[in-house]
């Protein structure tokens, strides 16, 4: 139980990486590390419970979200990563950090108010998963750069998967495969959209998208 708790706390910590990072490539690395941690939580849970579904789930997460999607992202948006550009927020960095701290508190507190008893994982992991979800959504909203918005959305999705581990550890593998494949397709589509955007406005800064065309 301790290993899962520790890994989840690390997962929350890594999510802050999305908030503080200035470089696109490090956001992709953060996503990779976050997915690895998520997979490791599932694997640690498998060691505790011996549910074969968890083992497959963990391996699926690590292989698809930890290795395949980061590679795909790097390929798709290589033009932006090579530049090593620094990106900005709609808010200032320290403000973003404080908002992030507030959001994780909201997530953690909300988990204690839910009338729900987790079966395998401790209550705080439920809170962590909500916090990760909120932080991911915040990054999606507050970042100017399209690629960072994509990684923020993916981070939020990892929070949801952690939530699924807390709520229903033995979820049918078919559903999990479907979810992960869904994400893979989403990344492909979003990568395509980002590339299109680069062609249209010569950049990935969404604050430049000011005109609506039919």
């Amino acid at each position: 139980m301790l290993a899962e708790l520790m890994l989840s706390a690390l997962l929350l910590l890594v999510t802050y990486w999305f908030i503080v990072t200035r470089r696109l490539s490090s956001a992709v690395s953060a996503y990779s590390v976050q997915s690895w941690l998520l997979g490791l939580v599932a694997l640690a849970l498998y060691v505790d419970t011996r549910l074969i579904g968890l083992l497959l789930f963990g391996l699926l997460i690590v292989s698809v979200k930890g290795i395949l999607i980061p590679r795909l992202l790097r390929n798709r948006v290589a033009f932006a990563l090579v530049a090593g550009r620094e990106t900005s927020y709609y808010v200032r960095f320290p403000t973003a950090l404080l908002i992030g701290a507030g959001l994780s508190l909201v997530g953690l507190l909300a988990a204690t108010r839910l009338a729900f008893q987790p079966q395998l994982l401790p209550q705080s992991v439920l809170g962590i998963s909500l916090a990760v979800f909120l932080l991911g959504l915040f990054t999606t909203i507050a970042r100017r750069d399209a690629i960072l918005q994509v990684t923020g959305l993916l981070a939020a999705e990892n929070g949801l998967l952690l939530l699924s581990l807390v709520v229903a550890p033995g979820l049918s593998l078919l559903i999990e495969v479907a979810i992960v494949l869904d994400v893979l397709i989403a990344v492909l589509v979003m990568g395509f959209l980002v590339a299109r955007m680069r062609d249209a406005v010569a950049g990935t800064d969404t604050s430049e998208l000011t005109r609506l065309r039919g």
């Binding site: 706390a9 929350l12 910590l13 701290a101 994780s104 508190l105 953690l108 507190l109 988990a111 204690t112 401790p122 209550q123 705080s124 809170g127 962590i128």
Partner: peptide, 11 residues
């Protein structure tokens, strides 16, 4: 530090 405190309180 804040997260450490929050995690402890919640858990």
């Amino acid at each position: 530090a804040f997260l450490g405190l929050a995690l402890y309180t919640v858990g």
